[in-house]
Amino acid sequence: MKKAIAVIILPMLILCVCGLGSCKNRSEKKVLKEAELEQVDSLQSEIEKNVYPLPTSAEVIKMLQDLEVGYMLGISNPVENARKYLTSASKAISMGSYGADLSYATLYNIQQEVINYLDAIRSLAADLSMSPIYDETLYDKIRDNFDNKDELVNVLTDAFNNTYAYLSENEQQSLALLVVGGAWVEGMYLTTHVSEAAYQVAGISKVLIEQKKSFDLFIDITKPYLDDANVKEFVDKLDPIKKVYDGLTTSLTNQNIIDITNAIESIRNQII
């Protein structure tokens, strides 16, 4: 889980909070220390709740670029689909999906696709009251850094972080998780469809194994929210990839990669 903010802030919180008990007697200190630890745990949970929990799709697409995989036209979620997402849950999932597609187009410098996906995301963001995150300045930042892939990853990651934080801070954690889930599925779909036969791409196995860690983490962080019908429905749809991943070790055969590809395709067909 991305805990960069927590790593910076928590030590300071601990020092500040624990310093409050320095003048108390031993018994008072013990009681105070227990309260302090509970306070720190609560603060840590609150901080982590607002931090995007997985590697973003921009970081995943960057892995593909590092493998020198070319851009495949026609594999992204068509922007025309944006108008068919009517519920808040479907809009959140699709924001995640289009976020992955935006990352794909951006890091491969497909400028018209960048504009198209930004427009689609803006439309969904407006419906979810998040217009400021995807305003014109985001495209300006992307345009100004087309030749700097690392900075592009930072720009896109900031957008994902801001989306997740906004939803979390506004008591919409379930929608935040659906954004993350949609992005993960689309990122996996792009990863497994960058070639007619993904298993022939050197290094693809490592990327898919890394994504297993992300999947396991996603399943873990959704557990407290499974009483939400939308989260439960989404997690249930992930069962095909769960079955494949549960049987894997630290290396993949060609058949494993084919099974992952088929599982992700079946899931993606249900959510886009």
Rank of each mutant, 00 (worst) to 15 (best):
N25Q: 08
W184H: 07
S97H: 01
P132M: 08
I219K: 09
I75M: 09
Q111A: 07
E233M: 10
F234H: 06
S57V: 10
D150Q: 14
M63G: 03
E233C: 07
G181I: 09
I75E: 03
I264H: 05
Y117G: 04
E169K: 14
Y134S: 08
V17F: 10
K232E: 10
N256W: 03
A105W: 00
V244E: 05
V201A: 01
Y85V: 01
Y139D: 10
A198C: 10
T261Y: 04
I260Y: 05
S22V: 15
T250D: 13
T261Q: 14
K33M: 15
D127F: 02
P224K: 03
Y225F: 15
A92I: 09
K49E: 12
V155S: 05
A105G: 04
A159F: 00
E48W: 03
Y139H: 13
P53M: 12
E151Q: 13
I257S: 01
Y139S: 11
A92T: 02
N25C: 10
V180R: 05
K33Q: 13
Q270G: 09
A183S: 15
S90I: 01
I14F: 00
E233D: 15
A197S: 05
D236M: 11
T250P: 00
A58E: 01
A58M: 00
A198Q: 03
S168Q: 08
K2I: 13
D227I: 12
N161A: 11
I204S: 05
L43F: 13
I267Q: 03
A92F: 08
V179K: 03
L226T: 08
Q211P: 00
L217H: 13
L10M: 08
L13N: 03
L178P: 10
N162L: 13
Q39I: 11
L226C: 02
I110T: 06
N256C: 00
L190E: 04
K237H: 04
I110S: 01
Y199P: 02
T157R: 05
V69P: 06
F146Q: 12
I271R: 13
A229M: 11
N25V: 12
P132C: 04
A4V: 09
D228W: 09
M95S: 08
F160T: 04
P78W: 07
D101A: 02
L107C: 06
A165R: 12
L107T: 09
Q39Y: 14
M12K: 13
L73A: 12
Q44D: 06
M63K: 15
E113Y: 07
Y71P: 08
A125M: 00
E169A: 08
L107G: 11
S251K: 12
S76M: 14
I204T: 12
I219Q: 10
K206Q: 13
N254K: 02
S94N: 13
L102W: 03
T192W: 03
A197I: 11
E136N: 15
E38P: 00
K242T: 12
F146H: 05
V69I: 12
E265Q: 07
K223Q: 12
P224G: 04
S97T: 11
S251I: 08
S27K: 14
V179E: 06
S42H: 10
V17N: 10
A82F: 11
Q172G: 12
F234T: 07
V114E: 06
L15N: 11
L167Y: 07
R26A: 11
T157E: 02
D228T: 07
I121F: 00
L178N: 05
A183W: 03
V185G: 09
L64Q: 09
K237D: 06
I5F: 07
